[in-house]
Design a protein around this nucleic acid. Sequence first.
DNA 1: CATCGTTATTCATTTAAAAGTATAACGAAA
DNA 2: TTTCGTTATACTTTTAAATGAATAACGATG
Lengths: 117, 117
Amino acid sequence: MNSNKLIISGRVWINSSNQASLGKGKIKILEGIIKFGSLRQAALDMKMSYQQAWKIVNELNSDFENEVVILQRGGKDGGKAIVTDFGLQMLAFYNSLQKDFEKFLAKQSEKINKNFN
Amino acid sequence: MNSNKLIISGRVWINSSNQASLGKGKIKILEGIIKFGSLRQAALDMKMSYQQAWKIVNELNSDFENEVVILQRGGKDGGKAIVTDFGLQMLAFYNSLQKDFEKFLAKQSEKINKNFN
DNA sequence: CATCGTTATTCATTTAAAAGTATAACGAAA
DNA sequence: TTTCGTTATACTTTTAAATGAATAACGATG
């Protein structure tokens, strides 16, 4: 007998041709950038070091064919960060992907518990 | 224009009610145990330290409701490791899950490239 | 009851990732 | 031309994970 449920979980990524990936963590940074217009604020908000966030954004920009985030320093507010149209498209696709994935996981969870009870 | 393909990748796990997970790495250990009948050999084969492999097997056994691997020391060949029926069932489900998941990923990969071209 | 190869366990070492510290570079606006 | 808050970058420190080394415990078998 096995009354305790088993659950299927998982994660998905969007990969460029050269293995670079856009997943949960990087998505969160993109959302932070959209929200704040600043990489520093985005990093601060998710309690990640600025250096780490900067490194991640640079990876995104160099690994994917198109630029994902534009970083500008100096100027009115000291500088700013902008998610490109390409970045926004990736974000939108990731969200739809995530939604479909959750359906997939729910179905599989149902299936495993039928199997094991 | 974007001629370089984007690919959707991911990973899935079987989780117990208390967050413990059975994924790619642990599955490989189970397969090694089945193949060799020995935890040491299984770890050696996948170039993982015995301590790590032992720790993982213990986690599996304590975190899931049923025992997954039986470890016996002493005796004819010094000892042995056996995957239980429950473990075999988990393995079987994981394989079918993985197969379905790969189909899901292929579909999503197709979709993202349609979107972006 | 000695042997053997395995499991069991501890402790030290190595390795890699993340975070922290510090400071320069930038450029619009006042 | 000074100020401001941001981006950019190097360097050090901290933290966590994996590995390595060493040794005890085990028990069927000969």
